[in-house]
C-alpha cells in the first residue's frame, strides 16, 4: 500500500518510524510538513527525511506545498496528521476533501475535521467509493471505533461513558494522591509534557467533548457539534472537594457521557466510586460501552503519545489494505 503523510510533527514522525522499523508493507510516496513537501512514486527514503527534519526543520522541498502532495503524489491512502486549527478544522479538512475527491482513502488523527464535518466528509468518501478512517482521533491507542464499527456488529449501543483526556486525568490523579492544588498539579503536568503551555483546550473539557462528538456521530449518526455538548472543565476542582469525595470511598474524574435516549451529551467532573472500571490512573484513557447484547464493556489504554497514535493510524491503514485494496 502506498501512502502520503501530511504533517511531520510528533505523530507523523512516529508513523514514519514504525513503518521503517516494522516494515508492514506500506510505502510512503508523498510527505509534507507545513513548509515543504516531497514526492517519489518509488518510495521516499524515510531515514533521510527524518534526518532532514531534525537538522533543517524541513522534510522536503520548499517549492512543494502540502496541497501539491495531496493532489499530485501517487498513493492509495492519505494520512492527514498535520497541525490543525480546532475552530475551522483547517488545513486538514481541505486536504481530506481533495484526497477523497481524487478517490483516495483517508486516515486521520485530526479531531477538527471529523468533529466539524463528519457527515459531509463521510458522504464525499461514499460517493467516491473510498474510506475515511479516524481511529486515532479518540482515546489514543484504544481501538474503540474499530470495536464499535466491526466487533460489536449486531449490538445496539445504548450509551457510552469515558475518561477521554489524559491531561485532566493526570491532574485529578495527582490532586487525589498528593493533595496538590489544581495549579500545582497543572504545573507538574506541564513539566512532564502532559499539558500544553495553554492548557485551556484540555482542562476546560473541550478535547474530551470533541471526542464525544466524534463517537456520537460515528455510533448514532447524530450530526451533533461541539455546541450540542454540555461542557464543564476541571479547572475549578479543589483538593478539599476531592478529599470530601475520598471520605466516602469515591473520587472525582472528568467523564464524557453520551446517552442518546435521554438526549444527553455531557462532559463534566463526576463523583465515581473507588474500584469503578473507569477509575484509571495518570494519563490513561478508559471507555465503557453499554450494549444490548454484549452488556457493559470497558476498554483501558494510553490516550496519547506519538507511538500510541501511530498504532491507531497504522491499524487503520492495514485494515484498508486488507479490506479495501484496489482503490484507484
Amino acid at each position: 500500500m502506498r501512502i502520503a503523510i501530511l504533517g511531520f510533527g510528533s505523530v507523523g514522525r512516529g508513523i514514519a518510524r514504525v513503518i521503517q522499523e516494522k516494515d508492514p508493507g506500506i510505502t510512503v510516496t508523498g510527505l509534507a510538513d507545513s513548509r515543504s513537501g516531497i514526492m517519489d512514486p518509488e518510495g521516499i527514503d524515510l531515514p533521510a527525511a527524518l534526518d532532514r527534519k531534525e537538522k533543517k526543520g524541513l522534510c522536503g522541498d520548499r517549492q512543494v506545498s502540502p496541497l501539491n502532495v495531496v493532489d499530485g503524489a501517487e498513493y492509495d491512502a492519505l494520512v492527514e496528521v498535520s497541525p490543525t486549527r480546532i475552530d475551522d478544522g483547517e488545513p486538514a479538512t481541505t486536504h481530506i476533501v481533495h484526497a477523497l475527491s481524487r478517490g483516495k482513502h483517508v486516515v486521520t488523527s485530526n479531531k477538527g475535521p471529523i468533529a466539524l464535518a463528519h457527515r459531509r466528509l463521510h458522504a464525499l468518501a461514499v460517493s467516491h467509493g473510498v474510506q475515511l478512517r479516524y481511529e486515532a482521533t479518540v482515546c489514543g491507542a484504544i481501538p474503540v471505533l474499530h470495536i464499535l464499527q466491526h466487533d460489536l456488529l449486531g449490538n445496539q449501543v445504548q450509551a457510552l461513558h469515558g475518561v477521554m483526556n489524559g491531561t485532566c486525568n493526570f491532574i485529578l490523579t495527582r490532586m487525589e494522591d498528593e493533595g496538590l492544588t489544581y495549579d500545582q498539579a497543572l504545573a507538574e503536568a506541564r513539566e512532564m509534557g502532559y499539558a500544553e503551555a495553554d492548557p485551556t483546550y484540555d482542562v476546560k473539557g473541550i478535547d474530551a467533548a470533541l471526542k464525544l462528538v466524534i463517537l456520537a456521530n460515528t455510533v448514532w449518526d447524530l450530526g451533533v457539534t461541539l455546541d450540542d455538548v454540555e461542557i464543564t472543565g476541571i479547572d475549578l476542582i479543589t483538593p478539599e472537594a476531592i478529599r470530601l469525595a475520598c471520605d466516602r470511598e469515591t473520587t472525582i474524574r472528568l467523564i464524557a457521557e453520551a446517552i442518546p435516549e435521554k438526549g444527553l451529551l455531557r462532559v463534566s467532573p463526576r463523583i465515581i466510586p473507588q474500584g469503578h472500571p473507569l477509575l484509571v490512573e495518570g494519563t490513561l484513557n478508559a471507555v465503557t460501552l453499554h450494549t444490548d447484547l454484549a452488556g457493559e464493556l470497558t476498554f483501558i489504554g494510553k490516550g496519547a503519545g506519538s507511538v500510541e497514535t501511530a498504532s491507531a493510524v497504522i491499524g487503520d491503514l492495514l485494515y484498508l489494505g486488507e479490506h479495501h485494496a484496489g482503490a484507484h
Binding site: A159, T232, L236, T250, S268, P269, I271, I272, H290
Partner: peptide
C-alpha cells in the same frame, strides 16, 4: 457554585 454529581450510569 460548581456542582459535581455522581456518575449514574444508565
Amino acid at each position: 457554585i460548581l456542582i459535581v454529581e455522581p456518575l449514574e450510569e444508565c
